[in-house]
């Protein structure tokens, strides 16, 4: 599997490493994917890197690669963001993978081996949901709202109504809320806020977890929040050019 830029892998690692320390990557002809729960079983993260994400991709037999994020991060730090990355896994020797970084300008090449782990992976079945509300907005805006409100209080309430979408946090000494209304005057789709809902709803989530989820803003200019009464929120980032996505499911807090 050859990626045109290592930056994609670096950003994916950044987006999951606070939640998951080790995870199985499933490789098949469609691409590379992973699903993992954090140890507290509060967040589920799913990553899909489709064949389209790669400059070249070949997977003759489906394989599972058990990756420890810490050494993987150490290896990835050795790659420049614009260097090409080739990941090689051999079906004859499933003990490790090889990573080759290529800097075409400098004619430099570096090669690393990463030992694979035998991870007792648990796969959760996520049922298809009929969402009560969907909000799409610039991922940078969502990140700023969450980062700011997480400083105010540890509970983040998201309410959707005719007024728009309201994010509220309450701390011991202060309370803050931010309201977004659907944008009408913005041309660029990536800068638009779109809100759809069937019934008004209000749900509360842990702000520290939501903060970790906003790290994936680096992977996509837009984010979609899907909510339903008394269900986990789904926060989805679609990568450009059908390259794949990263999705998080965060369990709500209950009264």
């Amino acid at each position: 599997a050859r990626l045109p830029r290592s930056a994609v892998l670096k950003k994916i690692l950044d987006s999951v490493k606070d939640l998951v320390k080790e995870t199985n990557w499933d490789c098949n002809e469609e691409g590379m994917s992973m699903q993992a729960l954090d140890t507290g079983r509060i967040v589920l993260v799913e990553v899909m890197l489709r064949e389209a994400a790669f400059e070249s991709y070949a997977c003759e037999v489906p394989m599972t690669l058990g990756i420890d994020m810490e050494p993987f991060g150490k290896v990835l730090r050795c790659a420049g963001g614009d260097e090409k990355v080739t990941i090689k896994a051999s079906r004859n020797d499933q003990d490790h993978i090889e990573l080759v970084f290529e800097n075409e300008e400098k004619e430099r090449m570096s090669a690393f081996e990463l030992k694979l782990m035998d991870i007792d992976g648990e796969h959760m079945a996520v049922p298809d949901a009929e969402w009560g509300a969907e909000i799409s907005m610039p991922s940078s805006e969502f990140k700023k709202i969450v980062m700011d409100l997480a400083e105010i209080g540890s509970d983040l309430t998201i309410a959707v109504s005719k007024l728009g979408v309201t994010f509220t946090a309450q701390g011991n000494n202060c309370k803050g809320s931010m309201v977004l209304q659907p944008s009408t005057a913005v041309d660029k789709k990536s800068e638009q806020v779109a809100i759809s809902f069937t019934e008004p709803l209000e749900m509360t989530f842990a702000a520290p977890y939501m903060k970790m989820i906003t790290k994936a803003a680096a992977l996509s200019s837009t984010v979609t929040l899907s909510l339903d009464e008394a269900c986990p929120i789904c926060v989805r980032y679609e990568m450009e050019d059908n390259a794949g996505h990263i999705k998080y499911y965060l369990a709500p807090k209950e009264d």
Binding site: R41, E122, A125, Y249
Partner: peptide, 14 residues
């Protein structure tokens, strides 16, 4: 104060 729910209440192992 609200209690944190776990995903096991919503999703089952495959």
């Amino acid at each position: 104060k609200a209690g944190q729910m776990r995903l096991d209440s919503f999703f089952k192992p495959q």
